[in-house]
């Protein structure tokens, strides 16, 4: 290697690192720098099982929960608990799945597992009627309120184009591990509500998001803190009248689960399960373009598991 070449490459790498840091995209920089290691999947999709069993399979193929949760780690699990409706309406994450995830975290040695959501309907009714409060208690986690501004702290959104600052629940800032557990469903504002959209429940000032280009804000927020793991509940799926739904007739049982560390990839795969092209969903396309993650599922190493047959 000639000296000039060395300098050129060095500068290029430095620039790339600098750019990556500016957009808060250091992970993807290293991901591209480190060659792909065989056996590690980018995304796992499971079909035709019960939520608990599907999660067991999925997490196993990512190396078990221990790959994400260290001994003594403080974990925050963020399901969708947004609405005061029973689980069969599929407006909220399957309580059995939440229970299972918490159990895995505690088995891996987590010191505490906190669960919360900034709900839309009256929060304690949502916690109770979704079945999630009970599931959390059963599993040994702690359910935490998200109903007051006092819990939320203002943070910078480093790569935000529209969203520069936002108020985030303290647990997102304090926890070592952040597990995002959305339910896949139709959404009247955001087309579909999956992993990225679910993060609107970790902030306080989402009215501002609605007021200032919703899709862009959803993509922007992912440059603040991306979840360490995204678990998409596609067991029951609300296909219309989302995000709240009107009746159980809005729901079909698809028995699907998708998990990935890449929030955009998780959304892309789930959108396809929903019957939508990821590129047709503005916040997925925007996040992909911003380098938050990738929606090109063809380029990913996907483990597809069918539980029956």
């Amino acid at each position: 290697m000639k000296r000039r070449e060395f300098i050129r490459n060095g500068t290029g790498a430095g620039l790339a690192a600098w750019a990556a840091m500016l957009t808060g995209n250091l992970n993807s920089f290293f991901a591209s720098a480190i060659p792909w290691q065989g056996g590690a999947y980018d995304l796992v999709a499971v079909k035709d099982g019960e939520p608990e069993a599907m999660f067991d399979k999925a997490i196993e193929s990512l190396g078990g929960m221990g790959a994400f949760v260290g001994k003594g780690a403080r974990v925050v699990v963020k399901p969708n608990i947004g609405w005061d409706v029973p689980p069969e309406r599929a407006a909220t994450t399957h309580p059995g799945l939440v229970r299972r995830i918490i159990q895995h975290c505690l088995q891996a040695g987590a010191s505490q597992v906190h669960v919360f959501d900034n709900t839309c309907d009256k929060w304690n009714n949502c916690y109770t009627h979704s079945g999630i409060e009970q599931a959390v208690k059963d599993a040994g986690g702690t359910i935490v309120p998200g109903n007051a501004e006092g819990y939320y702290q203002e943070v910078q959104v480093p790569g935000g184009r529209r969203l520069k600052t936002t108020k985030v629940h303290e647990l997102i800032l304090e926890s070592d591990v952040f597990i995002n557990v959305p339910v896949l469903k139709h959404h009247s504002s955001a087309d579909v509500s999956i992993a990225m959209k679910n993060l609107m429940g970790v902030v306080w000032d989402r009215g501002w998001w609605h007021r200032n280009d919703l899709h862009q804000c959803i993509a922007d927020y992912c440059t603040h803190r991306k979840p360490d793991l995204n678990v998409v509940d596609g067991y029951r799926v609300m296909l219309k009248n989302g995000p709240r739904g009107v009746s159980v007739n809005d729901v079909v049982t698809l028995k699907t689960l998708i998990i990935s560390t890449d929030i955009v990839a998780a959304d892309a795969a789930a959108a396809k399960v929903f019957g939508k092209e990821p590129s047709d969903v503005p916040h997925i396309a925007t996040a992909h373009e911003m380098g938050v993650g990738t929606m090109d599922l063809d380029k990913l190493n996907i483990n597809r598991i069918k539980m029956q047959g």
């Binding site: 955001a190 609605h210 919703l214």
Partner: peptide, 9 residues
């Protein structure tokens, strides 16, 4: 830009 907060709730 998209909103839909009213319809959501």
């Amino acid at each position: 830009t998209a909103c839909g907060a009213c319809s959501e709730h």
